[in-house]
């Protein structure tokens, strides 16, 4: 595997390998000089067709802490405005010599296309409503750090499942690690078909909340409210928001998560977001080491699972350097 396009590509073993390696990068991040030369000489380009603060900064910080160089491509200041196609843009950037492309796009599947066109490793940083694999990985890491393991844990993903790439990646990752996932949302905010999803569905947060280990709240995407999927935001909050009263009924061990950016007062009450059992800033903090692990596995480690099968290492070079201690 030489790209990270979907959590499904990783499987349980792949997720475990990323999380294991993340431990090492958490230690690196805690040093006085939080930087290692593992990817010196590599170039990582972030290609963002959609706005993002935390994901782009997190990837670029991760790349720099591995000693790689970074380039940023943002749509507003580029030739895309002059009508350049994604394919031409990708090939132009690759012609400059890059090793990894971090791609975000408003349409599902664009990172898959980019991976087919190009020669560099492609990391999906969010494509439409489809997937956001590194978010799922950092969420798994955060849960594991707080609760020890995901095995047998009950996780509710609450809110706008339909438009959420985070929900799709997280369902795959959480269930791969043995968690039991319940989607909690009004019927209008669920995908039209949930066939094949290894989840249960509930429309009653008050009933679900009592047995939860993790309450994972999704952002209410106000910009999509034109579709009139919920009558008003206030009504949504009354039925599905994590209010102070609801949060009080969470089991003691339970944690509260949110991928950000939050709508305080809509899907999560401000007091709940700042409570000690909310791990929202931990999620952000783990973003950097998780993305370091992904970049290192794809570009440097030579891990068998992440081996670039269609890009074999020069066998002569390997033979020549046979034995090393």
């Amino acid at each position: 595997m030489r790209h990270l396009l979907s959590i499904a590509d990783l499987g349980t073993d792949g997720i475990e390998e990323v999380l294991r390696l993340t431990d090492s990068f958490v230690e690196v991040s805690e040093r006085a000089i939080p930087k290692v030369p593992a990817l010196r000489g590599k170039t990582v380009v972030s290609l963002f067709y959609e706005d993002s603060t935390r994901t782009r900064l997190s990837f670029e910080t991760a790349a720099r802490r591995l000693g790689a160089d970074t380039m940023t491509f943002s749509v507003t200041t580029s030739s895309v405005k002059k009508g350049e196609s994604v394919r031409d843009t990708v090939q132009t950037i690759e012609a400059m010599g890059v090793d990894a492309l971090v791609v975000r796009h408003g349409s599902a599947g664009v990172p898959f296309q980019v991976a087919r066109w190009g020669t560099s490793a492609v990391i999906n940083a969010g494509d439409g409503w489809h997937e956001h694999p590194t978010q799922a990985l950092l969420d798994c890491y955060t849960i594991r750090e707080r609760l020890g393991s995901l095995e047998g844990r009950h996780i509710a993903i609450v809110g706008d499942i339909k438009h959420s790439r985070v929900a799709r990646s997280n369902v795959l990752a959480f269930t791969a690690l043995g968690a039991e996932v319940t989607l909690v949302a009004p019927p209008t905010l669920l995908p039209s078909s949930l066939e094949g999803w290894p989840v249960t569905v509930s429309h009653d947060l008050d009933d679900t909340i009592k047995s939860l280990d993790v309450a994972y709240l999704l952002r209410m995407q106000r910009e999509r409210m034109t579709e009139a999927l919920v009558p008003t935001l206030r009504e949504y909050t009354a039925g599905y928001g994590l209010t102070v009263a609801r949060a009080a009924r969470l089991p003691d061990r339970a944690i509260v998560m949110h991928p950000g950016p939050m709508n305080r007062g809509v899907e999560i009450a401000p007091e709940v977001a700042d409570a000690p059992n909310a791990v929202i800033l931990d999620q952000v903090a783990h973003g950097v080491p998780v993305r370091m692990a992904v970049l290192f596995l794809l570009l440097g480690s030579g891990s068998e699972m992440f081996a670039a099968s269609d890009r074999p290492a020069d066998p002569a070079a390997v033979e020549e350097e046979v034995v090393r201690g």
Binding site: P37, A38, G300, G302, S303, A313, R324
Partner: peptide, 18 residues
């Protein structure tokens, strides 16, 4: 592992956390 000069030539993964 992250400081080796043979990264990219052969499998290099840390065995444990520093």
């Amino acid at each position: 592992a992250f400081y080796r000069d043979d990264i990219g030539l052969r499998p290099v993964l840390p065995e444990a956390v520093t």
